[in-house]
Design a protein around this nucleic acid. Structure first.
Lengths: 315, 315
DNA sequence: GTGAAAGCGCTAACAC
DNA sequence: GTGTTAGCGCTTTCAC
């Protein structure tokens, strides 16, 4: 419970600054600064250090992040722009990125394309506020990136290979597809179809449409690979609508496994894509490599098939 | 501690400052400042303003957000701490909050409890970096909130009523339950059971367990209300396991509708909870009301029943 | 109408 | 070992 009830809080305590701490410990502000930020080049008498630490504790000093960033020209924040927070893949990428950032002592400033868009987001960010920008599946049509680059802010595109710039990290979709094929072959399938993927990610309607097209074509395939779970729900619905059973009449594997897969009927066999690792890797690369070097990484860790109920031997 | 600095600025990209713009426009920096921030008390000759604007355009000046915040003691950022980004309800709350924030010219710094926790998050934030903190469904056990309050940072709890502090905004769960009951009664149900809710939100296992307990009890109820969709998937699975059909043998309504509901078998009738509005309202209240006033708002807009396939007349 | 001066709170180079 | 000196880039009186 919070000790001070909001209504009865006393007058706001004057903020404690470095100078206050220094005065109390009878040392110079710069010494306190070095103690606080753990400067390794500082050689200080244990007794002095103790005094400083005591003063910090007594005063309840907390560094002003703004002043620190302004002076040191590093904000300790990373921008992250996603298409939509409610998109499950984006959520996982954000989660991975946030963890990696925290491990590096950094924080994430998020924005999404359901808001006023990338251009405005970068404007609001202003100069100096972020040390780098992570873009999830963004078509980077606007000149924002070039502008960013000119002001020295490194950026990285996640989950989408980005043209000639070669600043991206993507999941290993080929490996995922290969895993799906291997699985289906091992069940005895010889004719395997793949429904087309969309760069932006599938929708329910898109999956249904693609499946109907597949059906209309009169394909001989006994198994089909769907680019993602959302598209798969559409495909499954289309199949159900024409009375085809899964996996009896047709086996279905989805790529890019996400939670709803397990709750579908039948539960969907899918290949897991390491979205969290994508975010994590993005943060690490963004922080470690400069703005000028190309980055083109494929994340393969943790890609694996999760067998559920939508695949079986061909009839 | 101190992260490796990403992307050092290119050699010729010396940052443009207010002073540069001022020099170019032959005015004082303070005048430029006022023009940029749209100070209404500024009376300036149209011709001078034009010169300033031109200088801004020519130099590609962008204000340094850090310096501005340091000086004005407002950061234009809000902290948002959620249990887990991959939790669909949290994702919606974040989405709503981000939109509202952007409309107010503010930005969100996010953190989640899957990382190193609230205490560390607030530590990383440091002083001055946020103008307020939004906590989603956090048990606020630690003394972090009191500490925050002492340094004058207002906070608000979302989606959980928080003890005596009365600083929260929550969805109208009573109205939601009432809607569910009305719907079931109109179908002819007279005995309606409600599965217990958990403060932290249900899990698949929790829903299954609760449903088995309900079954074991030999209840005469012909319809049951489940606290959320995740719990409902568990409940549905438990029902399927004992061969009871939905809605034939038992009607099921979930509260707090979320996407997977439509893809379940049968598609789940559920009451929509306005998670996005919760986030939006949280931001608005946090920004408008001071740290000292109690806030206890119930968001009822947009609560409504979405009829899908899991409810029908009692047999 | 515009300018001058004084910092916001901190860090970094260098002095002693 | 610890202190001095300069700002980082901006806003805000207040002066003229």
């Amino acid at each position: 419970m919070s000790p001070t009830a909001p209504g009865r809080r006393g007058p706001r305590a004057r903020r404690v600054t470095l100078a206050d701490v220094a005065a109390r410990a009878h040392v110079d502000p710069s010494v306190v600064s070095k103690v606080v930020s753990g400067d390794p080049s500082l050689r200080i008498r244990p007794e002095t250090r103790r005094r400083v630490l005591a003063a910090i504790r007594d005063t309840g000093y907390r560094p002003n992040a703004l002043a620190r960033s302004l002076r040191s020209a590093r904000s300790g924040m990373l921008g992250m722009f996603v298409p939509d927070f409610t998109d499950a893949a984006s959520a996982r990428i954000v989660a991975g990125a946030e963890t990696a950032a925290a491990e590096l002592g950094m924080l994430l400033v998020t924005g999404s394309n359901t808001g006023p868009g990338l251009r405005r987001y970068v404007e609001l960010l202003g100069r100096g506020r972020i040390d780098g920008l992570l873009l999830v599946r963004d078509e980077q049509g606007s000149g924002v990136l070039g502008e960013l680059e000119r002001s020295g802010v490194p950026w990285l595109l996640l989950d989408l290979a980005g043209g000639q710039a070669r600043r991206h990290v993507v999941p290993d979709d080929e490996r995922a597809a290969a895993l799906a094929v291997t699985h289906l072959r091992s069940l005895g399938h010889r004719r395997i179809a793949q429904l087309p993927a969309r760069r932006a990610g599938g929708t329910h309607g898109h999956g249904a449409t693609a499946m109907r097209a597949f059906l209309r074509r009169g394909s001989q395939a006994t198994a089909v690979i769907v680019p993602d779970v959302v598209a798969a729900t559409g495909a499954l619905a289309a199949l159900r609508a024409v009375g085809r059973s899964v996996p009896g009449d047709l086996s279905v594997v989805a790529l890019r496994d996400l939670p709803p897969a397990a709750d579908l009927t039948p539960p969907l066999t899918a290949v897991r894509t390491p979205f969290g690792d994508l975010g994590r890797r993005g943060v690490e690369l963004l922080v470690r490599t400069g703005a000028d070097r190309p980055v083109a990484e494929v994340v393969s860790t943790g890609v694996r098939l999760v067998e559920r109920g939508s695949t079986g031997p061909p009839r």
